[in-house]
């Protein structure tokens, strides 16, 4: 079937949402509550579009295309509607961008900039503040929450944990754990997948480092814990990893677990080995690479000479790269002359 978007005709499949049709046509629609992996919810109201013959503006994430539909995505009426939505959201949102950790990666901030919203014009009661800092890895600040519901739906639909939900109705609505007993007393497994999808600063990692997103660069890599091989971006400031974001275009489809998401501080831990060490009279003393190499190589040569190749054994590593494992076994086979190479595949 065919639809007309902003005066141009497009072919679309049956059961396509207007949002998807626009996206496929390369037209960007602002969204705060939408995630391709989740069922549509229409919570944020920001993706409003105008459809010819329909009385009101409609949320494009929930409206399905019909044959010969005529859609406007950036008409004056639509822009005004979106500005109104942003005004309502920001009127009930603390303007703490100067100190908010999310600044620079906040979708609400970005859209307010795009749509020229400088402050909220609805000056009445603000949302009742509720903080939950009981989880060791992230904080929840209800004042910044825009109730997009992404965290609740990710936790339920993708992670399958359902640790959080909505409590109360209307203006009193909050994201909360059962009986408000706090995240630490819920079924939360600290995967942080809610934190990864929060478009604002309501769910924020407890970073050890102060950083601004515009000071960082992302490096795509593979998680170093279990064998699933999740892809993720290490967020790097200077020479330090300060945050981890899941990759969406990979096998893990935007999910990580507690270890992949939060357990990266070992990298810069003071206990890291920094220099080669040799044991002298039962005590380890630091040495140079040159001395360490000489000691190993001399020992290798003398063992090979006196006892032969079969006197060597090596444990390679399921933690190291393919290239390193390849070189390890090559060293044992081609240089030391033995197949005595194994690793902890059985453990």
């Amino acid at each position: 079937m065919q639809v007309t978007i902003n005066g141009k005709n497009y072919d679309v499949e049956k059961n396509t949402t207007i949002l998807k049709a626009c996206k496929d046509a390369g037209i960007e629609i602002p969204t705060l509550c939408h995630d391709d992996r989740l069922s549509p919810s229409g919570a944020c109201r920001l993706c409003l579009v105008e459809v010819e013959g329909w009385k009101n503006l409609h949320t494009s994430c929930t409206a399905i295309c019909k044959d010969n539909m005529v859609i406007q995505t950036h008409s004056d009426k639509v822009i005004k509607g979106r500005q109104e939505v942003l005004d309502l959201l920001i009127s009930n949102h603390p303007l703490e961008c100067l100190t908010c950790e999310k600044s620079g990666a906040c979708k609400l901030q970005d859209y307010c900039y795009e749509y020229g919203i400088t402050e909220g014009t609805y000056r009445w009661e603000m949302k009742k503040p509720y903080f939950d800092s009981s989880n060791p890895f992230y904080n929840f600040d209800s004042r910044k929450c825009i109730l997009c519901g992404l965290c609740v739906r990710v936790c339920d639909e993708l992670q399958g944990t359902s640790a959080i939900g909505f409590e109360n109705r209307g203006f009193e609505t909050n994201v909360a754990t059962p009986f408000n007993e706090g995240l630490i007393n819920s079924t939360c497994v600290s995967c942080g997948n809610c934190v990864s999808v929060c478009p604002v600063g309501a769910l924020e990692p407890k970073s050890k480092e102060k950083f601004r997103y515009w000071e960082t660069r992302d490096v795509r890599t593979t998680c170093s814990y279990c064998g699933v091989g999740c892809q993720m971006d290490l967020v790097v400031k200077g020479n330090k990893v300060v945050d981890v974001k899941p990759a969406f275009d990979a096998l893990n489809e935007g999910l990580l677990c507690v270890k992949g998401k939060f357990s990266y501080n070992f990298l810069s831990h003071p206990d890291r080995l920094k220099r080669p060490m040799v044991k002298k009279d039962g005590v380890f003393v630091e040495t140079s690479w040159e001395e360490a190499y000489n000691l190993i190589v001399n020992k290798m040569k003398s063992v090979k000479e006196y006892y032969g190749s079969e006197a060597f054994a090596g444990l390679t590593s399921a933690r190291c790269t393919n290239e390193e494992n390849y070189l390890f076994q090559k060293m044992f086979r081609a240089v030391l002359g033995t197949n005595n190479v194994d690793h902890c595949a059985r453990l």
Binding site: C226, G227, T316, A318, R319, N322, Q329, N339, D342
Partner: peptide
């Protein structure tokens, strides 16, 4: 389901005695 990030690779790369 392999337990370590590169236990598959360590086996693939010949980190085995045979």
């Amino acid at each position: 389901l392999r337990g370590q990030n590169n236990v598959q690779g360590a086996c693939d790369m010949g980190g085995l005695p045979g």
